[in-house]
């Protein structure tokens, strides 16, 4: 793959360098805010990483405005045993809450996908609450590239 030579890179950086300065600072959620949101959801119960839940996101997002996200939780999805809800939490957006998916036994399969905004490179967390009260967590880091003219 070709890359720019030093002089071209300098010129191009001057073109787009301003974007870096425009990136808002402060007012971002941090791991602490995300933790608070997590605690509100879990009621303070401990929650660990679990193989039952999968969170799929690209490793690198070309643009933070539209990043695909898919979750799936293993469950028979019967009235006796089903996934009640899955919360999505961001560690690096202005607000930690992203969305809560509410499932029912009628869902058949606990799978959902959407597209989310990512203000910067960060961890995204998904926690599932099952009908038996158990909690299951998955975490993904997504790198957000600060674009050139495109981004």
């Amino acid at each position: 793959m070709k890359s720019l030579n030093r002089r071209e890179a300098l010129v191009f950086s001057a073109v787009t360098g301003g974007l870096l300065l425009m990136t808002p600072t402060g007012a971002f959620a941090n791991a602490g805010d995300a933790m608070k949101t997590m605690e509100e959801f879990t009621g303070g119960k401990p929650v660990g990483d679990s193989k039952l839940i999968a969170l799929e996101m690209p490793e690198i997002a070309e643009n933070g405005n539209t990043v695909p996200l898919a979750i799936s939780v293993e469950s028979p999805m019967t009235p006796d045993s089903y996934v009640k809800r899955v919360i999505i939490i961001s560690e690096g957006n202005p607000r930690p809450e992203v969305a809560t998916f509410n499932f029912s036994p009628l869902s058949g399969v606990a799978e959902a996908s959407t597209r989310m905004r990512l203000a910067k490179t960060q961890n995204v967390i998904a926690i599932a609450e099952l009908s038996d009260g158990s909690l299951h967590m998955a975490k993904r880091q997504v790198k957000v590239t600060i674009g050139g003219c495109g981004g």
Partner: peptide, 20 residues
């Protein structure tokens, strides 16, 4: 910056302009 369309889209397409 004294650039034309061609400086980017003809002479340098296929290269990275920062992350893009």
């Amino acid at each position: 910056l004294n650039m034309s369309c061609a400086n980017c889209h003809e002479a340098n397409y296929g290269k990275f302009i920062r992350a893009d």
